[in-house]
Design a protein around this nucleic acid. Structure first.
Lengths: 246, 246
DNA sequence: GCAATTACTTTGTCCTGACAATAGGATGAT
DNA sequence: ATCATCCTATTGTCAGGACAAAGTAATTGC
């Protein structure tokens, strides 16, 4: 039952050793080399087999446990977790909500303006009274069919944004290019009924179910850079995630 | 700006040192000793000040970074993240969705049965054809007002469940008592419109917005123990989370 | 034969030490 | 004065070792 799992570790690569191990095991699980339910060799031997130290091996396994692919039990060993539970959107997808679903996503910019922020937005972005923000609404389509209506506010003291760039590179593309490194985001997911404004844009009827998502993103210097409110057609979108009990 | 942060580390305590540090810093942030935006001392000095090794201190900080309370930058230092972004439900709340909101949560068991599982449930729980499951629906109320309608299926080869116990101890209470250690869960959040069955139970009207949540929970041996579908009144509930970019 | 004890395996925690990579400021040359 | 270069502070990665705790299996005593 103990799978030996031969991985190639490239010590000259710039990618950290523990991350190479993470990817290696991930791949092994995906392509069936590591069967769900099977037990891995113990940390010491595994580390020795790859010429790594135990802390390095452990750090790799830590990540996989956090990701929900492995399960450890003291005195027993480490197991590949039951299949079925796939790698979901997961936390890492701080940006680019979709695009993985196969279809071709496109975006229409509906409105674009640059004006003084109202109090609610000032608070959400932690700005001083009188500060200005970019404000725009966009329609996200997949294969030409409307999926989401997105309204965003972005502080204007970091990157300059114009309508054309927004359409071409996307919001996060512009911000990343402008040197913004996002670190975390707070997000709230709920539901509402499509109103008369939203319904025609999303090609549905007033009263249809919508998934709502509000998000505020923070960069690595602690500034709240962007906040927004998105609504998705409930029949075409839902949020998947894997929760890990530490 | 460098906060010294005097923490008491109890080396005789059974709780790991790194976890004591995590709690200490968490508290310091909460009660204002550590101001958002302020810089911490560097890892080496902090570790030395508490008579800890750097790896131990780092492990503690790792957790706080993952939780979104701290932000690290190589060559620069570690910062307390901007306020506003509070500790949300977060991953740890695999169970006990609410109860923190102040009100008194109660639960009514509406239906309870034990029968052969249909194919969809068999697949979700990874059971063989012909296996039986517990199936029940519950109404969750806060301060007597209905909040959520919950329908669950639980495999019957681990713990015996009866209606009275369910009402008294809750589903996760029973399972934990029965020796089930949950490790992870896959969850999907979406939206729908209240139908004629749901509306009166939730004391709302057909057509009202509902948040839907489907979840399958896996224990530490890799078994899928429980799956369920919950609907919440959208005007009273939403899912909050913090996403961390690693 | 059965139960309590012991031994062993494996993960969990912690330590010391070292060097690399990056960001930012200080320094120096032009 | 301005720009390129060097230096320093700080986090990122990695090694090797040691002991504790928990779960499992084997052994022993009755």
């Amino acid at each position: 039952m103990a799978n030996s799992l031969n991985l190639n570790i490239d010590r000259s690569s710039p990618v950290p050793l523990y991350h190479q191990v993470v990817q290696g095991i991930e791949n092994a699980i995906h392509d069936g080399t590591l069967v769900p339910g099977s037990k891995l060799e113990n940390e010491i031997d595994l580390a020795a087999a790859m010429n790594l130290s135990r802390p390095t091996m452990r750090k790799a396994m830590d990540e996989l446990v956090r990701a929900g692919l492995l399960v450890r039990k003291r005195g027993v060993g480490t197991q590949v977790v039951a299949s079925q539970v796939r790698r979901p959107l997961e936390l890492s997808s701080l940006f680019d909500d979709l695009s993985a679903n196969g279809g071709k996503p496109t975006t229409d910019v509906l409105t674009f303006s640059h004006h003084e922020a109202d109090p609610a937005i000032l608070e959400k972005l932690g700005l001083a009274k009188g500060a200005s923000v970019y404000h725009f609404t966009r329609l996200r389509l997949v294969d030409g069919k409307p999926l989401a209506l997105m309204e965003n506010w972005v502080r204007d003291d970091i990157v300059e944004i114009d309508e054309a760039g927004l359409a071409d590179h996307g919001l996060y593309g512009i911000l990343r290019n402008g040197g913004v490194n996002f670190r975390l985001a707070q997000q709230r997911i709920g539901a509402m009924i499509a109103n008369d404004y939203q319904a025609p844009l999303l090609e549905t009827t007033p009263g249809a179910a919508l998934v709502t998502m509000e998000r505020t993103a923070v960069d690595d210097t602690g500034r709240m850079v962007e906040t927004g409110r998105h609504v998705y057609r409930a029949d075409q979108y839902s949020f998947e995630m894997t929760l890990v009990q530490r």
